[in-house]
């Protein structure tokens, strides 16, 4: 803020750093320990890949990992696809109930996931869909949709409508205008939304937990089960891996979202 003492300024900045320290402390500790040879956190610290190698032999975790990745990829495609369509509609058309439509996007984010997950469990069982990866996909897409619509919508706000008009005056048919102008302009937003959807699914625990039948699970669900049974350093290793992957994804998303070739 303008004015105020320099001393005060640095105190405040120092506080910010402390906050960041607090936010990253457990993550850093956990990640470091994943590379420590000792299974019980005994120091001195000896760098080793032993727990990661143990992971490679853990078939359950590997299968769960593959499930997670596959599910996240499917979620990314579906959620981004239908979310983008919806975002286009909300941006282009003057709809009478638009405010209502936008409010309807809130439940997945504001209702506790516990309730959403258990209600899905009830409903899917009742109508015969049951549990499983397909059920989880249904749930993950529902959770990702609001985010996709918001992210793509924000990107569309740049007035792609007028660009299509310009394309039309230059002789482009509506299809050509969409393909050559709207789509490329939208693309960074769509890709960013896709990454976001992937991350939302990959990290999703609660919904997957309720919709996982015995024998089929995703990585977070496996980790939870393992934690409840008792600590093993392998959990540490896989956790470190996951957090690095999801933070990495988010970093890419952040760059795309901000520097998406806009004017």
């Amino acid at each position: 803020m303008t004015g105020g003492s320099a001393w005060g300024k640095w105190t405040v900045r120092g506080y910010l750093l402390l906050t960041l320290l607090f936010l990253y402390l457990p993550i850093v500790v956990m990640t470091l320990m994943a590379f420590n040879r000792s299974p019980l956190y005994q120091l001195p610290f000896e760098f080793d890949f032993v727990w990661f190698r143990a992971l490679a032999g853990n078939d359950r975790l590997i299968q769960a990992g593959l499930n997670s990745v596959g599910l996240a990829a499917a979620n990314m495609v579906v959620a981004t696809g239908i979310g983008t369509l919806a975002a286009i509609a909300l941006d282009r058309y003057r709809i009478r109930g638009k405010a209502l439509l936008q409010i309807l996007l809130f439940p997945p984010i504001t209702i506790p996931w516990l309730i959403i997950g258990t209600s899905m469990l009830i409903f899917f069982f009742w109508i015969g869909i049951g549990r499983g990866l397909h059920a989880m996909l249904l749930g993950h897409v529902a959770l990702s949709l609001p985010y996709v619509i918001v992210v793509v919508g924000a990107r569309l706000k740049g007035g792609s409508h007028q660009l299509e008009e310009a394309a039309a005056t230059l002789g482009a048919t509506p299809w050509q205008a969409f393909w050559r102008v709207s789509l490329p302009v939208m693309a960074p937003g769509v890709v960013a939304a896709g990454l976001f959807a992937f991350a939302v699914s990959f990290d999703q625990f609660v919904i997957s937990y309720f919709l996982a039948p015995p024998g089929v699970s995703t990585l977070p669900v496996e980790i939870y089960a393992a934690i409840r049974k008792g600590f093993t350093p392998e959990i540490n290793a896989i956790s470190a891996l996951i957090i690095l992957v999801s933070m990495g994804l988010m970093l890419v998303f952040a760059r795309l979202y901000r520097f998406g070739g806009e004017r």
Partner: peptide, 16 residues
């Protein structure tokens, strides 16, 4: 797109 016109918009609408 079939009227054979050329148009310049107020904020140019150049394809970014």
């Amino acid at each position: 797109h079939r009227r054979e016109i050329g148009m310049v918009f107020q904020n140019y609408a150049l394809f970014p």
